[in-house]
């Protein structure tokens, strides 16, 4: 296997901090999917907050979507693995809680990907006063506005269950948070 490593690659991995810019790191990490909704990346979800580059190395700032998110350990391990693969070292992952994650941070592209995947994206962020007064949720399959809530809570903390009266398909809705 040693032969497979090119000379340029070797010199590159021997180089220390300073080789990668913040943009490089974001690009590398944007390949990591959300473990619950694999069509969107952790970057598109807004979980990847920042990268600090100091003399001590790279510090990836990650924020959980929900306090009880069981995937945080997995995501952290994936980040470390991907960075190692790209010879980004030394690197560590720090969980930050402030500011608290909100569905507002989901990119427009992420929302469209969710819809195409069959999950209705969050309508708005103003759930402060009426957590269940979501307004009209459009069916991600046929686009109909004739939909009804089946269950306010679903298989993950972020979703509610709906059904479409037009195409009769059940679907998930990503609640605003």
């Amino acid at each position: 296997m040693r032969n497979a490593v090119s000379a340029t690659r070797i010199s590159r991995c021997n180089m220390v901090t300073g080789t990668f810019t913040k943009q490089d790191i974001f690009r590398i990490l944007s390949a990591i999917p959300d473990p619950e909704i694999p069509v969107v990346s952790i970057e598109e979800m807004g979980m990847l907050r920042d990268v600090e580059i100091t003399e001590e190395g790279y510090n990836i700032l990650l924020t959980p979507t929900y306090t009880g998110c069981p995937a945080m350990g997995l995501i952290e391990a994936e980040i470390k693995a991907v960075l190692q693969q790209h010879h980004v070292a030394p690197a560590k992952v720090t969980t930050v809680l402030s500011p608290a994650w909100t569905t507002d941070w989901m990119s427009a592209r992420a929302r469209e990907k969710l819809r195409a995947y069959g999950i209705a994206p969050p309508l708005h962020s103003s759930c402060d006063t009426h957590p269940f007064g979501e307004g009209i949720v459009h069916c991600p399959r046929c686009g109909s506005d004739d939909t009804v809530v089946l269950s306010r809570f679903g298989a993950t903390a972020c979703k509610a269950l709906y059904t479409c009266n037009s195409c009769r398909e059940p679907f998930e809705y990503f609640k605003c948070h």
């Binding site: 959980p64 306090t67 809680l97 608290a100 957590p131 269940f132």
Partner: peptide
């Protein structure tokens, strides 16, 4: 800052608990 950050996350979830 620690308490404030934890509270900011907790409040979003509590809103759903109370309404339900």
């Amino acid at each position: 800052e620690n308490l404030a950050a934890i509270a900011a996350k907790a409040i979003k979830e509590t809103r759903y608990h109370l309404a339900h």
